[in-house]
Design a protein around this nucleic acid. Structure first.
Lengths: 257, 257
DNA sequence: ATAATAGTGTCTTTAAGACACTATTTG
DNA sequence: CAAATAGTGTCTTAAAGACACTATTAT
């Protein structure tokens, strides 16, 4: 999406790249659950991934950043392009839906406008620290909410597939990038990051082996503080070592969990 | 690309998806070198990756298959989407080039036609067995040739970058897919596949360890034939085991070379 | 016999995986 | 002291990596 105005007339052929959408699967982590930020257009009972279009003056990556910014209020988020979807049927299968979207948005693009036509979607996923996000609703949306990836609502078009592929990409990337940095608060405990990895990978990880491997990379560092969690032993807080983290991002690491 | 006619007027807005191109980096392996199939438009001294546009009646993947077919005469090639490129400058940086391309092709799209405009390129790479390919020249091309990836000619637009990224993607994928099947003839020797892997990865691999690992996957099988290579010991021929190969493609394998 | 390439085995080192007890905190 | 969660060490097994000699073929 190219502007901060969520109500821009995307079918303006002068401003926007035609036939191309950008969809951005915004992941957050909270309450031991991996969540996705979804929107529900007015009057429809289907949800959509955050999405928008590309201004002719910006790159695909800038468009994806802008979409993330519009929905979360956050800039410079971690963002990965994972796949581009395009087929004659991915939107038209549910023709009625898109007509309703326009109607509800108070828009009425010409019948022949590209926005009703073949649509390629360049899909990204974004990682955000849940607690920092202040959700931004567009005027044509009835709701914008975090949904657990494990229990999604009815999704519009092929958006369920897009989320599924985003999750696969994330699961692939977690072995090669220090993903936790983006999803956790600045200070976190070992049990928290352990649970994050288990959640994303959908399997249990032996806590001793997990800790050993994670610490051996040198990307996190124990602090001299603990977190009080009630009637239990207080876990130590850790933080990411920016230097090691950046190196890991650049060169890749291998975390064989 | 959507038809078998290499001279189709791509700027026809009724037929083609606007603003979106598909570029396909076609890899082949020959003479111990990894090669790419490139074209040179008439009168320009820059080369391009195989590319084309998407018919509104086909999917992105179909378009990529059609591009590969038009250039190689082969169907059902192994094909992977690896990245989508899009920025306001990737084509316009060399505005003169694209004008010349049109001129040389005898085309004269209207000044405002999308084809001169912002262009998103969905990039794929394709693996082919070099010897099966019969190269197909389009009328607006002066030449179509295999170039060693290690010594590319001057490339148009961002095509050098696209090839670089395709190679990175291939190097990533080689660890998870039984790549050799696509690039080698049906029967091949251990030294041949060994050299293929060394070439793609750009590093030497201990032949004993390589053989041990490759054979342990069960995807190749020793035949009862040898290849005569002159005044040397004759190497045995091997072939891929289709069953194991398909399983490896589907589930992924791990080849830690 | 020589030159060139094919083919194979062992040892060492490192990483993965399995496994269970002790420590801290609060009520 | 009981309940809950944090935190840590060792052994076994598997895989990776390093390394060098013997086998075959044609001239």
């Amino acid at each position: 999406m190219g502007t901060n105005d969520l109500d821009t007339a995307y079918f303006d052929e002068q401003l926007y790249v035609r036939n191309v959408a950008v969809d951005n699967v915004i992941f957050g982590y909270h309450d031991r659950e991996l969540k996705v930020l979804l929107q529900k257009p007015k009057l429809l009972d289907k949800w959509t991934v955050a999405g928008g279009y590309i201004l002719k003056t910006e790159s695909v990556e800038e468009a994806a950043h802008n979409i993330a910014f519009m929905r979360t209020g956050l800039k410079d988020l971690f963002l990965e392009q994972f796949k581009t979807f395009g087929s004659p049927t991915r939107i038209k299968d549910e023709w009625l839906d898109i007509e309703k979207v326009f109607e509800n948005a108070g828009l009425n693009p010409p019948t022949e406008a590209w926005i009703r036509d073949y649509s390629v979607s360049i899909a990204f996923y974004t990682l955000t620290e849940f607690s920092l996000v202040t959700v931004q609703k567009a005027s044509f949306d009835e709701a914008i909410e975090w949904w657990p990836v494990a229990q999604l609502p009815r999704m519009m078009f092929d958006h369920a597939l897009i989320i599924e592929e985003a999750l696969k990409a994330l699961q692939r990337d977690i072995y090669h990038y220090p993903i936790g940095y983006e999803l956790l608060p600045r200070k976190f405990t070992l049990p928290e990051i352990h649970s994050l990895y288990e959640t994303i990978l959908g399997k249990t990880l032996d806590n001793r082996n997990f800790t050993r491997k994670l610490l051996s990379t040198g990307i996190i560092k124990k602090l001299d503080e603990t977190r009080n969690i009630g009637a239990h032993r207080s876990p130590f807080l850790y933080k990411f070592e920016k230097k090691q983290y950046d190196a890991a991002l650049k060169n890749g690491i291998f975390l064989g969990f």
